[in-house]
Amino acid sequence: MGALTEDPAFQDTTFVVIDFEATTPAGRPAQPIEVAALALHRTSTGWIESGRSTTLIRPPDFAPVTWANTARSGLTAGHFANAPAPAEALGALDRRFNGRRRYLLVAQHAATEANIIHHQRRHCPRLARVDLIDTIPLAKHLVPGLDDYRLDTLLTHFAIPHPADRHRAAADVEVTARVFTLLIEAADRDGTLSDLADLVKVAGRTAKANRPAQQQLFDL
C-alpha cells in the first residue's frame, strides 16, 4: 500500500463504479435504458466488493430504442417489454446508498453519468447528491502521453481484455472498475496523490445537486 490507499478517508469511502446506457432524443436530455453499479472499498489487504446491481430501464415513449442503440449495445425494443420504469429502477438503486457511509461515484467520462443522474434526480435523490471521480483526468494525470483516453484505449494500455458485450452497462462497469483500481495502484507507486483530497482535486466532479444555486445578478 501507498500513501493514498493508507489514507483513512480513502479507506472510509465506498467507490461506486457506475455506467448508463441511454437513448438520446433530439432536444431532450439523454434517457437511461440500462444502469449497472459496482461498489468497492479499500482495506489494508486490498479491494473488497460490497455490492453490485444491474437493470434495464424502460425508456419513455418520446425516447425509444433506436437502430443506433442496437448497433452499439445489441439492445432492441423487445428487451424492454418487462423492464421497470425509471422511478422503480433508479429508486431501487437509490435505496442501496446508506446514509452512514461516505460514497464517491466512479465513471469513465463522468459528465455523462452526472447529467443522466441529475435529470433523473427525483427518482434517486441520494444518488444525485453523490460526487464523482472521473477516470479520464485521473488517467491523464497518472498515465500521460496516450493518444487518447477513451475506455478502449485504457483497456489496451492496461492489457485488460475487451469484453464481448462491450457497451452493455454491466460489462463496462467491470472494466471501468479494473481501470480505476489499476490507476489507484499507479498513484500509490508514484506517490503523486497522497490522500483522498488529492484524488478529488485531480479527478473529482461535484454532483450538480451539490453545486450552489446561481444567484441572480439583478432584482427584477
Score class of each variant (00 low, 15 high):
Arg129His: 14
Thr181Ala: 04
Lys208Leu: 13
Ala63Ile: 07
Arg28Asn: 09
Pro32Asn: 09
His162Asn: 14
Thr181Leu: 09
His141Ile: 09
Ala114Ile: 03
Asp12Trp: 08
Asn115Cys: 09
Ser44Lys: 12
Ile136Glu: 06
Met1Arg: 13
Glu6Pro: 02
Val173Leu: 02
Ser194Tyr: 15
Ile33Asp: 06
Pro84Asp: 04
Glu88Val: 15
Arg42Glu: 05
Val202His: 02
Ala89Glu: 11
Arg121Asp: 04
Thr70Trp: 03
Gly2Glu: 14
Ala30Val: 07
Phe80Trp: 11
Asp219His: 13
Ala30Ile: 00
Asp195Val: 09
Ala170Asn: 08
Ser194Trp: 15
Asp172Ser: 00
Asp188His: 10
Ser50Pro: 05
Glu113Arg: 08
Ala85Arg: 14
Gln31Arg: 15
Gly145Val: 14
Pro60Asn: 11
Lys201Thr: 15
Ser50Cys: 04
Pro8Ala: 03
Pro25Trp: 02
Ala169Cys: 03
Ala169His: 07
Glu34Trp: 06
Val16Gly: 07
Asn98Arg: 12
Leu199Met: 10
Leu127Gly: 08
Gln120Asp: 02
Ala63Pro: 03
Arg205Gly: 06
Ala187Lys: 08
Ala9Asp: 11
Cys124Arg: 01
Phe97Val: 01
Ala111Lys: 12
Pro8Lys: 06
Ala197Phe: 05
Gly46Ile: 10
Pro212Cys: 06
Thr43Val: 12
Gln215Glu: 15
Asp94Val: 05
Phe97Leu: 01
His162Gly: 13
Lys201Pro: 08
Ala107Met: 03
Arg100Ser: 14
Arg72Ser: 11
Arg96Asp: 11
Gly51Glu: 01
Arg166Asp: 08
Leu93Trp: 10
His157Ile: 03
Thr112Gln: 12
Pro25Leu: 06
Gly74Phe: 00
Thr45Met: 14
Ala39Lys: 04
His157Ser: 00
Arg189Pro: 11
Leu105Ala: 01
His162Tyr: 13
Tyr103Asn: 07
Phe180Gly: 04
Tyr149Ile: 09
Arg52Lys: 13
Leu146Gln: 11
Val202Arg: 08
Ala89Val: 13
Ser50Phe: 03
Ala110Asn: 02
Arg101Asp: 13
Asp147Pro: 12
Leu155His: 06
Pro125Asp: 05
Ile116Gln: 04
Leu217Asp: 12
Ala128Asp: 00
Asp152Val: 07
Ile160Tyr: 08
Arg168Gln: 09
Ile33Tyr: 05
Val179Gly: 02
Thr135Ala: 02
Leu146Glu: 07
Ala114Phe: 00
Arg28Trp: 11
